[in-house]
Amino acid sequence: MSGIANTIARSGGTPSEKHPKASAPALGALQGSLASIREIDPNLIDDWGPVDRLEEFTAVNAEDDDENFEVLKNSIREGGQQVPILVRRSKTAEGRYEAIYGRRRLKACRELGLKVRANVQDIDDATALLAKGLENAARRNLSFYEKARFAEAIQSAGHDGATVRKVLNLSASGHSHLSKVTQNVPSKIGDFIGAAPKSGRPKWTDLAELFRTKKLTEKVALDILAKISASLNSDERLETLIKEATKRGAKAPGGSREITPIEGVTIKAGRGTLSLSVKKSGASAEFATWLEDNLAEIIKRSHAEFTDVNSADDN
């Protein structure tokens, strides 16, 4: 066995325990045979299918990704390519191939000027997707958001929901949770945040809900993310965005709202109350004293204005 089958065996698992259930053609494509392993010029291999790792299409983790890629490249330079990639013959160009999985190994060999060891299989799109999902599941667990983006990419490539669920081993409700995130969180925001490997469904659902209810916009989110320290990792970026969006006035999923219009002044809006607090120290100290003397009159005038406006609307 090679590729994913070897990985599963080493981990002590089986495809039916923790990974998408493998069809015979998909598992066969992954295992391959010595006769199907060839050394191919990387320049004859094109990418195929939906991207299954967020790092392939986001630059937010570029520093870490570059470091990990260099480790991979050095390993291949010093010890050779140990695990073949999976390819199939191109359907449109004679003599060319399509990479089902192994993009990073392919890129490393291309940069090193080496031929890439590839398992060449004649498989259809559905089998290729299953093989891709199986290999990825054994190699590295996708984060919740990576799964969401992979599921979206599979459907964007023209495959139905049943295929998505089979490839990612999802229930209907699990697929629904992923879809809620990709349908509401702009992909540009997701790219900026990154894979967030330690953040599961709750946090991404919270962010999706902020966008769904229009309590957070892409423009505001990008403004917040642009000011976040570059030293934060993707999980910290996600958490900071949710906190900052709430602080700026976006209602959190629990229904609360907190606004800081000026330094030292906080307005909190809950489901049943609205409160105002002003610090009597620091920059807001003098304003707090003035407001204490004038707040009652300000509220009376505001209420009278509110009443006049409502009366005009009724007429």
Rank of each mutant, 00 (worst) to 15 (best):
M1H: 03
I4K: 06
I4P: 03
A5M: 00
T7I: 06
I8G: 01
T14I: 06
K18F: 01
K18A: 01
H19M: 04
P20M: 08
P20S: 09
A22W: 07
P25N: 10
A26T: 03
A29G: 15
L30V: 09
L30I: 13
S33K: 02
A35D: 12
D41R: 00
D41Y: 03
P42F: 02
N43K: 00
L44G: 03
L44Q: 03
L44N: 07
L44S: 07
D46L: 14
E55L: 00
E55N: 10
E56S: 02
A59T: 04
A59D: 04
N68F: 02
V71D: 13
L72V: 06
N74E: 15
S75K: 05
Q81P: 07
Q81F: 11
L86N: 04
L86I: 08
E94M: 07
R96H: 12
E98W: 05
A99K: 00
G102Y: 05
G102R: 08
R105H: 06
R105M: 06
K107F: 00
K107G: 04
R110P: 03
R117H: 13
Q121N: 04
I123P: 09
D124T: 08
D125A: 15
A126C: 05
A126M: 01
L130A: 08
L134E: 11
A137R: 11
A138I: 06
R139I: 01
L142W: 12
L142F: 10
S143G: 12
K147E: 03
A151Y: 15
A151D: 00
Q155D: 13
Q155A: 13
S156N: 11
S156Y: 03
H159D: 08
G161L: 09
V164D: 00
R165V: 10
V167L: 12
S171F: 11
L178D: 01
L178A: 05
V181A: 07
T182S: 07
N184F: 00
V185F: 09
P186Y: 01
G190F: 01
D191W: 11
D191Q: 08
I193H: 02
A196F: 10
R201F: 07
K203H: 11
K203E: 15
D206S: 14
A208M: 06
E209H: 05
E209C: 06
L210S: 12
R212W: 03
R212D: 15
K215R: 07
L216D: 13
E218Q: 15
E218T: 10
E218L: 13
A221F: 09
A221L: 13
A226G: 14
D235V: 04
E239K: 14
I242E: 15
I242F: 14
E244I: 13
R248P: 09
G249L: 12
A252M: 10
G254T: 14
E258T: 13
E258W: 07
T260P: 01
E263V: 04
T266Q: 05
K268M: 05
K268T: 04
T273R: 06
L276D: 12
V278N: 02
G282Y: 03
A283G: 08
A283Q: 08
S284R: 00
A285E: 10
E286I: 13
E286G: 12
F287Y: 07
T289V: 10
E292C: 04
D293R: 15
A296H: 14
E297V: 12
E297C: 10
R301C: 02
S302F: 13
H303R: 15
H303W: 03
D308S: 09
S311Y: 08
D313N: 12
D314H: 09
